[in-house]
Design a protein around this nucleic acid. Structure first.
Lengths: 112, 112
DNA sequence: ATGTTTGCATAAAATACTTAGGTATATGGG
DNA sequence: CCCATATACCTAAGTATTTTATGCAAACAT
């Protein structure tokens, strides 16, 4: 994901939220969509993505449907009910993270 | 650092920026300061902090001065010139990260 | 005296990701 | 026809970062 260390830990959040919005996506599509939205800045490698999809499925946050597009396999992932609850939690975490980083790094108040 | 995955990758940024602001701090002081600023939400473990301080020093971003407080050792870290350049870079990265996450996760525009 | 806080440190394990492969189909250019 | 590129899945070894679990020692409060 580029050279920016900060993206570490954000992959599951990105995948879950994207699937919540788009309803249904397959792995390769996720990599392309993220690249497009970020103007090529955020590149999700397949070596990170596929294991993450399998993990989220194992955790019951995603479900899979395998379909054939012509002669090629596609595995469409959808978010489950548990996954939707997880999205709410993850988004709250993201907001908390951003707030904490801002208060840490743009300190307005001097402490005693 | 709590249960929030998103803090992964942010430790160096936090340490560098804090030292840029405060001028001079020792390790234990950094852990307490961060805990205080974040109302106990962000706890930096010593097992993560000390290796990171050593690494940043080895990279020439920090310098150390060992002093005795009574009979106890304290190792005060300060930011170097290279460290200050790194802070500028890291803060730009943080802003880029936040912007990307917002455009990814609060999408206003539908893509083709 | 004993437990907690201060203050340093390292080492093993877990976690997350990168890098580097592997397989196979589809497609466009030369 | 051939070959590079794109599509589409996958795993395994290596690297980086952090957690967890220790260890040592001085200071301080009960």
């Amino acid at each position: 994901m580029g050279t920016n260390q900060l993206y570490k830990g954000s992959l599951a959040t990105i995948v879950l939220k994207l699937l919540e919005e788009k309803g249904r996506m397959y792995g390769y599509q996720i990599t392309q969509e993220v690249k497009a939205i970020s103007d090529g800045e955020l590149v999700i490698t397949e070596g990170a993505l596929y294991p993450m999809l399998h993990k989220l499925e194992a955790q019951g946050l995603l479900t899979v449907e395998t379909e054939m597009a012509g002669n090629r396999m596609r595995k469409y992932y959808s978010i489950t009910h548990d996954g939707q609850k997880e999205v709410v939690y993850r988004m709250a975490e993201l907001e908390a993270f951003i707030r904490q980083m801002q208060s840490l790094l743009n300190p307005r108040i001097e402490l005693a």
